[in-house]
Each structure stands twice: as C-alpha cells, then as structure tokens.
Design a protein around this nucleic acid. Structure first.
Lengths: 146, 146
DNA sequence: ATGCCTGCAAAATATTTGCATGTAA
DNA sequence: TTACATGCAAATATTTTGCAGGCAT
C-alpha cells in the first residue's frame, strides 16, 4: 500500500516523529499520524479515525487503529480524554490543557491551560503524588430548559 | 424476599427517600439504597454493589442493579463519575464536589467543593451554558519513579 | 534474519434490552 | 387492577487478544 496523498515533506516530518518515539515507520502509522497531526488539534474516536482513513482510500483494521492510538498515547503523542463512558477520545493536543464537553453532541473543545486558573488545590493524600489535573466543563444547549 | 438486616428506622428513612423521588418501594431498591446511603459517602461500581448485596445475603440481578443505579442517578441521588474507560463509578455524594483518582488502585476520593478554588473559568462558547465543572486530580504512588 | 506490525476473527468486558412473570399502588 | 419492577438470557458496543503472515530494520 502506498502512502498515496502524503507529500514527501509530510512523510518526512511524520517519519521523524515516529522515529523519535521509537516506533517503526509503517504505512498505517504514517496514514493515521497524517490524519491526526497534519491539521491542527483534534479529538477523535477510534471508529471515526478508521472511517476517515477509509474515506481517504486506505482501509486500516480496527485492531491496528486501536493499537496505533494506544502506542501514540504511550509515546506521549496523544492524550486519552475520558468524558464519555462508551467511547474513548484521543486528543492530539498533548500539552496540558482542559476541555469543554458538549454531551448532546459528543463534542470536545480544548481550553488552553491559561484559561483556567486553579487558585487552590488540595494537598495530595499521604503516599501519593500529583499526576495531572483534569478540568472538564460540561455544557448544555443554551436554550434547553432545565 | 425480606429486607432482612434492615432496621425499621432505616427502612422508613430509605422508603421516604425513594417516595420523594417518585420511585416505588421494592425490596431490591431498599437493599441497594441501604448499601449506598446508610454508611456515609461512597463510590461504587455496579459489579461491586451487586457483590456486596450478595454478601449480605441478597442476590439482585445485574440488570436490576444497573437499572437501579441509573434511576437513582436520574433522580439526583447519585452522580456518575467518569474516570475510567471500563468501569462506571457512582458517587453517593450528589453535592457539587471534585475527586482524586488513584488509577493504580481504581480508587476515588472526594474533594469538597471548597478545597478547589477555580479563580478563573473561560466563557462558555456561544449557544451553550455551563452544566457543571468537574475537576479530577489524578494521582500516582509517591515512590513510583517517573 | 529477526523481531516488530498488521489484519482478521474471536474473545473479553460492561452495559442495555426484550420478554415473561411478579408485585406495589 | 394496572402500570411499573424484576430476572434471565440475549443483544449491543467497544476494545483487546491470539495467531499467521508480512515488512521494517
């Protein structure tokens, strides 16, 4: 399978990214990396990403999509965001930041870390250290009566 | 089936709680309510709750456990906390508050709302209103080298 | 050449649902 | 009496895994 719609520059850039984290350069990984990282920050589910790949002419098995997403996450290229019980979201913005989540639309929106000011955090319990702080602001449609 | 180990006072209190939210008073609901609400704030999964019921001598089908948890949540008696992709946690503390989450132990710890001071929040996007703000502080074992 | 990668299908897991029976109101 | 509740088993959905063959290094 060829990396069809991938410019030499993009291919080189993405290859470097994969090498840098110790992953072999394979066609499926390059394709997924392209979909994930060549167009700004994104939030995707495994199934949506597989569908995009298919639309762009490349079929990648869902096992491979899951493997790849998990490997990218382990490598720090992606972040797993847990807002919905049923679906896993992967966020291409791996820098520290927060999220709006619109439940009705199953949609995530990034919030830059600076936009949220945590003036006071409790001490971590004895024996534990802080890993990271996640702020999720859940939103409703404004017109929705509640 | 009898509500075996349930004092008349507890039974009355829990019955009142169920009535207040428009749920019929049935043995499974009384039992689960007892396990959930008679011993301070708790975080449970459906499976753990079913196991507790079984241990206390009452077998409740998992369909009923799930139904009941969902109904309690809809009624505002419980809160669904989403920290783990695979398991649903229900929190008997339905007041606004936040959480520590110890991934290694799959354990949740409440943080009182006052312990976290959100000095600054971004405006909600056009057309949406704030539902609620969730702060999750993920913790690691302190000795863990990372 | 070797070990990592991929795809398929099957397995595993958590939760929901259909339906017949039971029971609170 | 009637609508709602329960239990069982089957269905659903997502993600993981075993394995055989393929490819990067």
């Amino acid at each position: 399978m060829e990396s069809a719609n991938l410019s030499p520059e993009a291919k080189q850039r993405l290859s470097a990214m994969l090498s840098a984290v110790g992953l072999r350069i394979t066609a499926p990984r390059l394709h997924l990396a392209h979909l994930l990282f060549s167009n700004g920050n994104r939030h995707v589910t495994a199934e949506k990403l597989a569908a995009e790949a298919r639309l762009s002419g490349v079929t990648i098995s869902s096992a491979t999509v899951y493997n790849t997403l998990n490997q990218f996450e382990a490598a720090g290229l992606l972040r797993h965001v847990q807002v919905d019980q049923t679906r896993s979201y992967f966020d291409t913005n791996s820098a520290p930041h927060h999220h709006f989540y619109i439940e009705d639309e199953a949609r995530l929106i990034d919030i830059a870390a600076e936009e949220v000011n945590l003036a006071r955090l409790p001490d971590s319990p004895q024996g534990y250290q802080l890993d990271r702080v996640e702020v999720i602001i859940r939103l409703d449609k404004a017109d929705k009566t509640q």
